[in-house]
Design a protein around this nucleic acid. Structure first.
Lengths: 250, 250
DNA sequence: CGGGAGGTTGACAATCGTCAATCAGAGTGG
DNA sequence: CCACTCTGATTGACGATTGTCAACCTCCCG
């Protein structure tokens, strides 16, 4: 252990290096963040709406989601997270959590004290920029979800969601572009899209009948024709800002 | 002109100082940002989805919105902005605009070169933190909008929106808590809430009949009973993070 | 083999959208 | 000052996407 670099936070390095060029010192600064890990079981909460938070968390393995419960008791899922992603920069920079963070599968997270994260961001400008960019891309995805839920019909919404997952999982090194494991129940898909699980079920069936997707095992998504699905889903990946690298450093 | 401090960017200072304590040097650094102003007419675009952007813009007066057009041609409004708000930090830190920015009323904006903004953020940590926080609060509002559009019925959605405006305009020094000018057509309200203008019309009428709001002139909103409207709108202001000040400096 | 979570299906209800006509108010030019 | 015009608001009739309720099925796991 001692003397050796700890590579636990490597997934975060990978994620942050995706858009901003990081040198070795930047990488080391990230890897040397103080943290403690925590295992979560499926459905376990990491943060609950209203909590006072003191840590930022990085998802090391598994899947997680952010969600809110509205007045009537309905749940809206706001984001799905995969390995390497920061899940609550917002919850720890802002004092009070405005939404919950919950494991979608068994998962492992690293908890980094807020102060350490802030220090990292301001002492290592490249890293700071990467973190900031990351939260801006997050926001871009939120915006797309507003449009998805607000202005698309069920078929389009779900196709869009499947396309988004396809690309994001691919970038994270999980699954092929046209085949991936999606550990979500139909109810969870419903809560992402503002629909009911019954209607999601019917819509998935329709997509399958049209040979746009196949469902082999319960959680495997196979996309029959990517272009066609993207077309049906009104999907344009621009909002993920995937191919935008280093826009000139500060 | 010369020798005197230019106070054009004062609204931005005010906005940023809302959550993070800024000293005089910080304030001066903001006021001394290079910028050029531009006047926009109602409905004029400042940024179009897909543009390559090089500037961040601050809304100096008037109202503006961000929006996207989805496949079927429908528009989804993603955010409404008032005086002092940064409208496209994201559009200029990220290379390609993933949504449009458009004036809701005649408006005046200050355009700040991206590099100057980045420099400001990293050389003045308090300011950098304020900017970052600002984009995190923005994201929080996006999340609430996802939930609003995804999981609330028309009546609740609209009541929620009216409550949000009430608080935000009040904070910006525009209008009372229970009475304000809202320069939006019913179609624009519809595009905020994922409804049609016809349904917005009917819902507003119903809210008025229930004495939750009054509509005097076309654009004036008078809230009859704030608590009741907040109740109907399932409104909890926590997501605006209004009363969260200075959470310990980096 | 039993239990349980989640998926599937049908019948029916309701919120919300569509279409289209009409109305009202603000700005403009004669 | 008044007709004119245009945008946006209002209203009605009707249609459709999506939700609700409830039963049943199926796969997975101990």
């Amino acid at each position: 252990m001692s003397g050796q670099t700890d590579h636990t936070l490597e997934p975060l390095v990978r994620k942050l290096a995706y858009r901003v060029r990081l040198d070795d010192a930047d990488r080391d600064a990230i890897l040397q963040l103080p943290y403690r890990t925590r295992r979560l079981e499926r459905r376990e909460f990491l943060v609950r709406e209203g909590d006072r938070n003191t840590h930022s968390s990085v998802l090391l393995s598994g899947f997680a989601m952010r969600n809110k419960i509205v007045g009537g008791g309905a749940r809206q899922i706001l984001a799905i997270h995969v390995r390497g992603e920061m899940m609550d920069l917002q919850n720890s920079l802002l004092r009070t959590a405005d939404h919950s963070v919950q494991a979608l599968t068994d998962a492992k997270v690293a908890l980094v004290p807020r102060e350490a994260m802030l220090k990292l961001a301001f002492e290592w400008p490249h890293v700071g920029k990467a973190l900031w960019l990351d939260s801006l891309v997050d926001a871009s995805v939120f915006r797309e979800w507003i449009a998805n839920v607000g202005r698309r019909d069920a078929r389009t919404r779900i196709a869009h969601l499947l396309c988004e997952f396809s690309l994001r999982l691919n970038v994270a090194g999980l699954g092929e572009e046209c085949q991936y494991e999606l550990p979500m129940t139909q109810e969870e898909i419903a809560d992402c899209t503002g629909l009911t699980s019954v209607h999601v079920n019917r819509t998935l069936k329709a997509l399958e009948e049209d040979r746009l997707i196949e469902r082999q095992s319960r959680r495997t998504v196979v996309i029959g024709d990517w272009r066609k699905l993207a077309d049906v889903g009104d999907f344009d990946s621009a909002y993920l800002h995937l191919d935008e690298n280093e826009p000139a450093l500060a």
